[in-house]
């Protein structure tokens, strides 16, 4: 009799084990599918041309960093680091601005009752309904008239305004989740509205700040359309620079992929660092 029980247990264990294995396999396949292009890009940037075009593909090779060296120090004109720096400046400034301004707008919308509050909130979100191509001409003219063509400021302003709407919308939800008594306690404790915003409300929506910061940063870092039109030259960002590669006569795949890797790296590091907050931030409310 006593032997039956462990047998049964093993059968159940084996069944769940097989199921887990299947799930893991599927997950691995999916992750592999997602990461393979990245793998190709990074390995190609470390290969020689012969290795890149060899058939069957070369899986094991000694990595060389000549492509990176070339992209940074040998290529004529402005080298990759210049555009990387442009991207960094534009992305960090516009994300910081969007999150800060958006947080203030969201706090106001969440905490102050005034006529048309909900309409204003919805209007802010609705500015993202139209496809960006739709207003590229007016924006171009505005930037041109103000003499900001091919400057980082133009991109920072445009990206901030584009990110502001969803930052405001998302953060408004976060502020609404803060129990009002906590802020009332702070009022009675002697804090002004502004102090409460900075010392109580902002720290409490930190996951929301992280999530919106990541989303704005990814948007600004990847944005191509406006960057290519408003800042095609000296102030160009890395996507614009990368696009320029494929236009040249013959593509230096090693260098191309080296710049690509360098372009992906900062946003990857940024996202990985804030990833925990991102997941918490985007599922906020749903899990409570």
């Amino acid at each position: 009799m006593s032997t039956i029980v462990p047998d049964k247990k093993n059968a159940v264990g084996a069944a769940t084990g097989a199921r887990n294995l299947a799930i893991y396999l599927a997950a691995c396949l999916f992750v592999g599918f997602g990461l393979f292009p990245l793998y190709m890009m990074i390995t190609t940037s470390l290969k020689t041309d012969q290795q890149t075009f060899a058939w069957p593909p070369v899986w094991l090779f000694t990595p060389r960093f000549q492509s990176y060296y070339n992209a940074l120090f040998v290529f004529g004109g402005r080298s990759a680091d210049h555009y990387l720096f442009n991207s960094l400046v534009v992305t960090l400034s516009s994300s910081a601005l969007a999150v800060f301004l958006g947080a203030m707008a969201a706090y106001g919308l969440a905490r102050f009752r005034f006529r048309g509050n909900r309409d204003v909130a919805f209007y802010i979100l609705s500015t993202r309904f139209a496809p960006p191509v739709g207003f590229i001409v007016p924006i171009y003219l505005m930037v041109q008239r103000s003499g900001l063509l091919d400057t980082q400021i133009a991109l920072i302003v445009v990206y901030t305004s584009m990110n502001l709407s969803f930052v405001t919308w998302i953060l408004r939800g976060f502020f609404l989740e803060i129990p009002i008594e906590i802020e009332e306690a702070a009022l009675v404790d002697g804090y002004t509205r502004w102090q409460i915003f900075l010392r109580v409300a902002l720290p409490l929506v930190r996951p929301g700040l992280a999530a919106t910061a990541i989303l704005s940063a990814i948007f600004s870092w990847n944005e191509f359309l406006f960057a290519s039109i408003l800042a095609p030259g000296d102030a160009a960002t890395i996507p614009v620079y990368l696009a320029g590669f494929s236009a040249s006569m013959n593509i230096d795949w090693g260098e191309y992929m080296a710049v690509g890797t360098m372009a992906v790296l900062p946003i990857m590091i940024f996202t990985l660092a804030l990833q925990r907050h991102l997941v918490r931030g985007l599922t906020f409310g749903a899990v409570r």
Partner: peptide
């Protein structure tokens, strides 16, 4: 306050 309203952070 009834629900204490402490600062959670």
């Amino acid at each position: 306050f009834e629900n204490y309203a402490l600062y959670p952070h």
